[in-house]
Design a protein around this nucleic acid. Structure first.
Length: 136
DNA sequence: GCCAACGTTGGC
DNA sequence: GCCAACGTTGGC
């Protein structure tokens, strides 16, 4: 199983929306690197849900339920979507500041490549964030 | 194929 | 609101 992190602007689609909807189509990705990560996702992979801008924090956990297929919202170009479902909210959001301050999390793409919206996360990093978030 | 100009994202 | 980082576009 692989681990991932996806970003969303909370006022566009928040983790609370996902808790309400139970599952969603992750569409609108228009970046090749991010798209390639989407295509590498497998059913059952765990996904950290990060709020950019306002919150700047990981707020919840989701899971891949459908692998990549063509993005129905793309009028042109070769883009993909996946479907994810909510798993659970973190007890405490793990902020970008606390990730930056944690020596074990310095290699995360979240820090190194701030603009990337879909990225792989190492298993150890994933578990560390759950722990910081008050889960497990 | 290089590079300047420009656009977008996201942190501060 | 500003700016850094980075992707994309277009001229040469």
């Amino acid at each position: 199983m692989n681990h991932w992190l996806v970003k969303s602007e909370p006022f566009k689609y928040s983790f609370q929306n996902l808790l309400r909807d139970k599952k969603t189509i992750w569409d609108g990705v228009r970046n090749y690197q991010a798209r390639n990560h989407l295509r590498a996702m497998k059913v059952g992979d765990a996904v950290l849900f990060y709020h950019s801008n306002e919150d700047k924090a990981v707020v919840g956990v989701a899971e891949v339920v459908k692998t990549a297929y063509p993005d129905p919202t793309a009028k042109e170009g070769d883009w993909s979507v996946v479907e994810i479902k909510c798993v659970e909210a973190l007890q405490e959001p793990v902020t970008l500041a606390s990730i930056k301050a944690n020596p074990d999390l310095q290699n995360m793409a979240l820090i190194k490549q701030s603009r990337l919206s879909v990225m792989p996360v190492a298993k150890t990093e994933f578990q560390k964030i759950l722990k910081l978030g008050g889960l497990k």
